[in-house]
């Protein structure tokens, strides 16, 4: 995994796996910490994939991170982790935006839209019967291609945290 930090943004790309170094993540955070930021954006959208060892390393970093993180452009694999691990949002972290897959039945094409928590997707205690509006792109209608109750459960399960932050 490669990483770059500037001002209040940390960007990552590559693969989050056993080769990801906890020490490298900590050293990346140090120059940002010097500016005493209130919050730092973590953009993992260019991470191609992750395995459990890489995720554990990431979580250990978040636990010890000297500043809170807000996840931006969170890709689908990361949303899956948000939903799988209870208590993912420690140390003041939360999600600002995340990717949602859509599908166009007309030509079976697939597109990922980035949505803002609290704006595109309201913060609710339950997403049962919640309907995500269709989206238009290049004159084609795209329908949401996830089960809202499952995919947005990280929001409903952390609604209190997210309401305080957003």
């Amino acid at each position: 995994m490669r990483a770059a930090a500037a001002d209040s943004v940390m960007k990552f790309d590559g693969i989050l796996d056993e080769t990801t170094s906890f020490e490298n993540l900590v050293s990346l955070a140090q120059p940002i910490e010097a500016n005493s930021p209130e919050i730092v954006a973590a953009d993992l959208s260019k991470i191609q994939r992750a395995n459990s060892t890489g995720i554990v390393t990431w979580l250990r970093f978040v636990k010890q991170c000297p500043f809170p993180l807000k996840y931006v452009n969170s890709p689908k694999w990361l949303v899956s982790q948000f939903n799988m691990i209870n208590g993912f949002f420690v140390n003041g972290s939360y999600v600002e935006s995340f990717q949602v897959p859509f599908f166009c039945p007309e030509d079976e094409s697939y597109f990922v839209f980035t949505m803002l928590v609290g704006i595109d997707i309201p913060i609710l205690d339950s997403y049962t019967n919640f309907i995500v509006p269709n989206r238009m792109l290049n004159e084609k209608i795209y329908e949401v291609d996830i089960e809202p109750e499952l995919y947005f459960s990280f929001i409903s399960q952390n609604a209190k945290i997210f309401r305080e932050k957003i």
Binding site: N51, S52, T53, I55, V56, L59, R60, K63, S80, M84, I85, N86, G87, F88, V90
Partner: peptide, 23 residues
């Protein structure tokens, strides 16, 4: 098993890998 942050960060991965596979 339900995965909790403390379980996952407490040892190698607490079965997170198998859960990830099943998902």
């Amino acid at each position: 098993a339900q995965r909790h942050f403390d379980d996952v960060t407490g040892n190698s991965s607490a079965g997170l890998g198998l859960k990830l596979i099943l998902e």
